[in-house]
Design a protein around this nucleic acid. Sequence first.
DNA 1: GTCTATATGGCGATAGAC
DNA 2: GTCTATCGCCATATAGAC
Lengths: 217, 217
Amino acid sequence: MPTLPATTNGTSSSGTTTNGATTGRRGRPGYDQQTVLNVAVEVFNRHGYDATSMGILAENLGISKSAIYHHVPSKEDLLSLALEEALGGLESVWASPEAQSGAAEHRLEFVVRSTVRVLTEKLPFVTLLLRLRGNTETERAALERRRSFDRKVAELIGAAREEGTLRKDIDPRTVSRLLFGTINSIVEWYRPGGSLTPEKLADDVVTVVFDGLHTRS
Amino acid sequence: MPTLPATTNGTSSSGTTTNGATTGRRGRPGYDQQTVLNVAVEVFNRHGYDATSMGILAENLGISKSAIYHHVPSKEDLLSLALEEALGGLESVWASPEAQSGAAEHRLEFVVRSTVRVLTEKLPFVTLLLRLRGNTETERAALERRRSFDRKVAELIGAAREEGTLRKDIDPRTVSRLLFGTINSIVEWYRPGGSLTPEKLADDVVTVVFDGLHTRS
DNA sequence: GTCTATATGGCGATAGAC
DNA sequence: GTCTATCGCCATATAGAC
């Protein structure tokens, strides 16, 4: 999907972005920052952030490179805005009362379900976050916030294990890593709008993670 | 970890590469292609392939940019060599008799274990493969071989489900995706040489994937 | 097998007109 | 809000000496 002739000046942002998200804007380019961001994140995910030049981005927007700089001061600022959206969504999981009290088993299940939900709602933004390598200060700060999220889940796993609801024959760090692997990998294949709803996906993840793939007797 | 002063001319490849892998070379730079490749792959994984310039790579090798071109004709050839190593390892899984006959349940478990083993043995190479975006023909060809591997595992999942050993309340495509998510994510955290051996890791993956995290009664 | 010097092009970003 | 033209830099890769 290289070097599109772009939807040359006129169709790109009218209601539906390249990204597929309805933005509610009236026709013609005349972008706003959020729409530029949505398209940018989609293109970043398709080619990788580093491999996406402002020129490629401009083609996908159907405007010139320099016009992008009217909406956002730099490529790195686009990244920063996107990461804020991803991290804000993930961090909001902990604000719910269900995440704060009750049996660790139930808090953990709630957090898993909520994480899957945020992941599907903010799919392109979280995808971008999960692929960072930490090459700039912006990226490293985002990764640190992500690690902080992971640490909280790890604590919950520890609590559930002490409760006796999680198996003890596997190192809790391994458990935590495999759990995140399963959840985070969703961004690599899940696409909203298909027959698999976010709710069913969350059910499936909870089932597989806690009960496994084998049939029960 | 930016712009290392490099291990300036003399320590870098003497027995142990930046990569940590013993290569069996006698001191001083004087690299061979495999050693350049090992270091390159490690640096590609640290910064991302696209974000890694030949300059950064040269610093990590402790030689000049142009010296790299003595060993390999281009940056993309380095990628290509690395991907061949990853894909060759993965594809070899299907050569074993245990992958070809017997109950689907057992073939599937064998393939999961073998994949985890290849993943740990060729960790940096498989890591690079799993992060590709398909930006060049080289990358797209590798991704196609990877998809072919995935398709074979999906077939095995279908067979195990028909046997009645895998649960039927989840779409087989979802099962396949979650299984790969769990396995593939290992490259993001597993490091050989710690207390978690590849064998125990494979046991843990098989346990979690097939029996789940919950305690059994 | 390595070096310095260099060719050539694309990058992110800016200036200033419309 | 967009454009054309351009700046300065760094990218991959080459030439040719040691």
